[in-house]
Simulated assay, not measured.
Amino acid sequence: TTNSSHAANLALFKSLPYDPVKDFECVALFGLAPFLIVATPNAPFNNVKELVAYAKANPGKLSYGAGTSTATVSGESFNRIAGIEVLRVPYKSAPPALTDVISGTIHYTFIDVGTGLPHVRGGRLKPIVSTSSQRSPNLPDLPTMREQGIEFDLDAWYALFAPAKTPAAIVNRLNAIVREEYSKPEMQARMRDFNVILKLGSPADLAAFQKAEIAKWARFVKEAGIEPEG
């Protein structure tokens, strides 16, 4: 997802071999990739309010897996905002974290809907809450954290960028092509199959969105006490 390379990494690493803003021209935002908390089927909670209540009654007894930057930032921010103490178990990637949730080795993790949905539908994982700004079209009955009274949302997202100094005429033409193609019903249906919530706009819209996302990630990383790497 583009949110890592063009927003989150500025806060997660001390230095980068590129500048996510100065080295690129904003072309178009495609859409959002909703995330959710999924738990082992035998977890002693069925929704986020029960999770928070259990964690407060049993501090330090729950654990969550973090195999991506989004999972790490989401987990530590959730701990802080909800006022709970849940152990973070780091993984090199999302799949092994998901495997350990399914087996019950850890209690829950933060995962994108596309990866988690087959396991939810197969009964191998229990959906707890959406951590995104809106409900997933493929899990319409699963509420967001904000709907449950927790002031938190963090989306992964996809966008198109061009190299810096790409002529404005080319940028605008590419943007027009993206908006035209992704406005077609068949493309909208395909994006839904890929668990992407379309969010189209102008190059200026993407620039404003990226600026807000950079600030959001910086705030969450700092408040969560995560030290930049490298």
Rank of each mutant, 00 (worst) to 15 (best):
D19A: 03
G230N: 15
A28C: 15
G225L: 05
F209Y: 12
R219L: 06
S133D: 09
E85D: 06
K14G: 15
I150H: 00
T144M: 13
N46S: 02
S130K: 13
D100T: 04
L12H: 13
A94K: 12
A7C: 12
G149I: 04
S136E: 04
M187W: 10
G230W: 11
G122K: 11
R190Q: 13
P17H: 09
A71S: 15
Q210N: 12
R173K: 14
Y158M: 15
T2W: 13
R192I: 06
I102E: 09
A212L: 07
E50L: 09
A33E: 13
V73K: 00
F209R: 13
D193W: 04
L125Q: 12
K49L: 09
E76K: 07
P96L: 04
M145K: 00
S69V: 02
E229D: 14
I128C: 06
S132V: 12
Y182W: 14
G230Q: 15
I128M: 04
T131R: 09
F161S: 00
F194E: 11
I214G: 04
A189G: 08
G67R: 00
E213Q: 10
G65Q: 05
A162N: 14
A162E: 12
H119W: 08
V89F: 02
P20I: 05
L206C: 10
T109K: 15
K222G: 05
S103V: 08
T68S: 12
N172L: 14
L16H: 13
I214C: 08
K216S: 06
K126S: 03
T166A: 07
E227L: 06
W157P: 00
S5T: 10
P44Y: 01
S133Q: 14
E147W: 02
A224R: 14
L139Q: 09
Y18P: 04
F30A: 04
P118V: 04
R173D: 14
A169M: 10
V86Y: 00
F209D: 11
P20G: 07
S103F: 07
A53G: 08
A218I: 04
N58S: 01
L62N: 02
M191K: 13
F209I: 04
W157K: 08
C26Q: 14
P185A: 08
R121P: 11
Y108T: 10
V196F: 01
T144H: 01
K56C: 03
T166C: 10
S63E: 03
T40I: 01
M145Y: 00
D193V: 03
D153T: 11
T115G: 10
K22F: 02
A39L: 03
L62W: 00
R219D: 10
R88Y: 01
P44C: 03
P140V: 03
F110Y: 15
S183M: 13
V27W: 00
G31S: 00
L139G: 06
P137T: 07
A11I: 11
R173Q: 14
A224D: 11
K92H: 06
P203Y: 07
E147V: 01
I111K: 10
F24T: 04
V171M: 15
Y108V: 03
T2I: 11
Y64R: 01
P163L: 05
D112A: 09
C26I: 07
L142V: 07
G116A: 09
R179D: 12
M187T: 07
A224M: 08
S77A: 07
T105I: 05
N9K: 15
N46H: 01
A55R: 00
Y54F: 02
E76I: 02
A94M: 14
L206D: 03
E181A: 14
P143K: 15
S132H: 02
G122Y: 01
I111P: 01
